[in-house]
């Protein structure tokens, strides 16, 4: 490596300056002002009132736990389904798996609103499923709208494609001979999964988890359209407070959402930066 003098560092700093200023201007400034605002009461005086409210008010707490709960169920559900799907795509070489592998990315290409309304026409209590069941003399009401089930189902629809894509790539990076040599020395399929495949794809799973967590903790469109009136997801609650011109409380909610995202961002950075011993090559 060439030795860098303080002059080169200065040059680098000078070249980075414009983008740095821009970043400060359009990201940091509003963020700081939101944080400041969240620590104010209606009259602009410093106060912890907004946070006190969010953590003590019955409705606000409901919203908070509801959001966390739905997000965690979404993360776990999406990862579990995606991992199984990815395993199937990676290790089963059948016509069906080939067919699925060409299709599973489809949800990525359907705009969110279109997907939500399409889903609604299918699953609402007078929707397609209901009509089909009536043909057979039943009156099946899925009961998926305006409650957690509907939001989670929609979240899964949006996230499974993405999660599967990443996990498929991770599994594709595991050579067959690694799996085969494990079977060869006497490990069954389950043992091979837990001792070889899972550890070798764990990092990618963690990364997908943080991504899904971050994008779902602040979700808005889905719960706004098909979510219940109470409890509300934080994103909807924020807009709700905003439209009632409770700007300080809205600010506090967004700080809260940001705090949740930061936790998963830290997990993300940690898993990404922490190179396990075996990932370093000593040669």
């Amino acid at each position: 490596m060439t030795k860098k003098t303080w002059k080169t560092y200065l040059l680098i700093a000078a070249m980075l300056l414009p983008s740095l200023i821009l970043a400060l201007g359009i990201i940091l400034t509003p963020m700081i002002s939101v944080v400041i605002q969240s620590f104010q009461d209606e009259n602009g005086n410093f106060s912890l009132e907004q946070y006190r409210f969010l953590f003590t008010d019955r409705m606000a707490l409901d919203n908070l736990w509801y959001t966390v709960w739905i997000t965690i169920v979404t993360v776990i559900g999406a990862i579990a389904i995606s991992y199984l799907l990815a395993l199937y795509l990676r290790f089963c070489d059948t016509k069906i798996s080939k067919f699925i592998s060409t299709l599973y990315l489809l949800p990525r290409f359907v705009p969110q609103l279109v997907a939500i309304y399409a889903m609604m026409t299918v699953v609402r209590d007078s929707g397609l499923l209901n009509r089909i069941s009536q043909l057979f003399g039943y009156n099946f009401k899925p009961g998926l709208l305006y409650n957690a089930k509907g939001i989670i189902m929609m979240n899964l629809w949006f996230n499974i494609a993405f999660a599967t894509m990443i996990i498929v790539a991770a599994l594709a990076g595991i050579p067959d001979s690694i799996v085969e040599s494990s079977r060869d020395v006497g490990a069954g399929k389950i043992h091979t999964f837990f001792k070889m495949i899972l550890p070798l794809s764990f990092k990618d799973v963690m990364i997908v988890m943080t991504f899904i967590f971050m994008s779902n903790i602040s979700s808005f469109t889905t719960p706004y359209i098909i979510g219940p009136n109470h409890p509300k997801l934080l994103g909807v609650y924020l807009r709700d407070q905003f439209s009632r011109m409770r700007y300080e409380r809205a600010a506090a909610i967004s700080v809260l959402i940001f705090a949740f995202s930061s936790i998963s961002a830290v997990v993300y950075l940690y898993t990404n930066l922490k190179e396990k011993e075996w990932e370093k090559t000593g040669l």
Partner: peptide, 29 residues
């Protein structure tokens, strides 16, 4: 099944499990 056979195979490459030390690789079986 391969795990039930009294055979052992060495492949052209990528034989060892990269997340295990030499000792762990050998101890696995």
């Amino acid at each position: 099944q391969p795990e039930k056979r009294p055979t052992a195979m060495v492949f052209q490459s990528y034989n060892l499990w990269p997340h295990m030390t030499v000792y762990e690789n050998m101890a696995f079986g």
